Simulated assay, not measured.
Amino acid sequence: MTAAGVPLLGTRAPELTLPDTHGTPVQLSQLRGTPVAVVFFPFAFSGICTGELCELRDNVAAFDDAGVRLLAVSCDPMFTLRAWSEQEGYTFDLLSDFWPHGAAARAFGVFDETTGHALRGSFLLDADGVVRWSVVNPRGQARPLAAYREALATLGV
């Protein structure tokens, strides 16, 4: 881990178990055998977050073609994420890091203690749960789809 707590490339990702939009727990370690993209975002229904996740929704085939499971995580309550997912038609999992508040974001080093939300951090894990790519963008800066495509190509699928 770096001083900020962001997992270093080549290290195993922190464990997380979070409820999806229906309250079903999703445990990262149980997804081993499948590459996973973990995408932290600040707030449901906000402009940049909606733009980013809609772009992922519209290009989810890139993740599917690479055999990567896409998980989007925020500190919003499960019911907020469900309403947003239904409104926007997201077909990937949205996970609630609401309680204990921000525990997963803290474990990945992307929790903003001052404002109580996740930063824009993305992590690509290989089938063994090892971090192969990551990016943490500053406030107000969306992550470009091209960066995800380049990261997916590194998996060699």
Rank of each mutant, 00 (worst) to 15 (best):
M1H: 14
M1I: 13
A3H: 08
A3Q: 13
P7H: 05
L8T: 13
L9P: 01
G10Y: 15
T11K: 15
E15V: 03
L16I: 14
L16V: 10
T21I: 15
H22K: 12
H22N: 12
H22E: 14
P25K: 07
P25I: 06
P25R: 07
V26E: 02
Q27D: 11
Q27A: 15
L28T: 02
Q30M: 07
R32D: 03
T34L: 08
P35S: 11
V36P: 01
V38P: 06
V39D: 01
F41G: 03
F43M: 05
A44Q: 03
A44P: 02
S46H: 05
T50Y: 09
L56H: 02
D58I: 10
D58Q: 12
V60W: 00
A61N: 13
D64K: 14
D65R: 13
G67F: 08
G67S: 10
G67W: 11
V68R: 04
L70T: 05
L71Y: 04
A72Y: 02
S74R: 09
S74H: 07
T80D: 13
L81S: 02
A83C: 08
Q87V: 06
Q87E: 15
E88R: 15
E88P: 00
G89L: 10
Y90N: 08
T91F: 03
T91P: 00
F92W: 08
F92A: 03
L94G: 01
L95P: 00
D97G: 09
D97I: 06
D97N: 11
F98N: 09
H101E: 12
A103L: 03
A105C: 07
A105F: 01
V110M: 07
F111P: 00
E113C: 04
T115A: 10
A118G: 10
A118N: 09
R120H: 03
R120P: 02
R120K: 05
S122G: 03
S122H: 08
S122F: 07
F123S: 07
L124R: 01
D126Y: 08
A127L: 06
A127D: 15
D128E: 15
G129E: 10
V130C: 09
R132G: 04
W133A: 05
W133M: 04
W133N: 02
W133I: 01
W133S: 00
S134V: 01
V135R: 14
V136T: 13
V136E: 06
P138T: 08
A142Q: 12
R143T: 15
P144C: 03
L145T: 08
L145E: 09
A146Q: 15
A147L: 13
A147R: 12
Y148D: 01
Y148V: 04
R149G: 07
R149K: 15
E150L: 09
L152S: 04
L152W: 07
T154V: 08
L155K: 06
V157N: 11
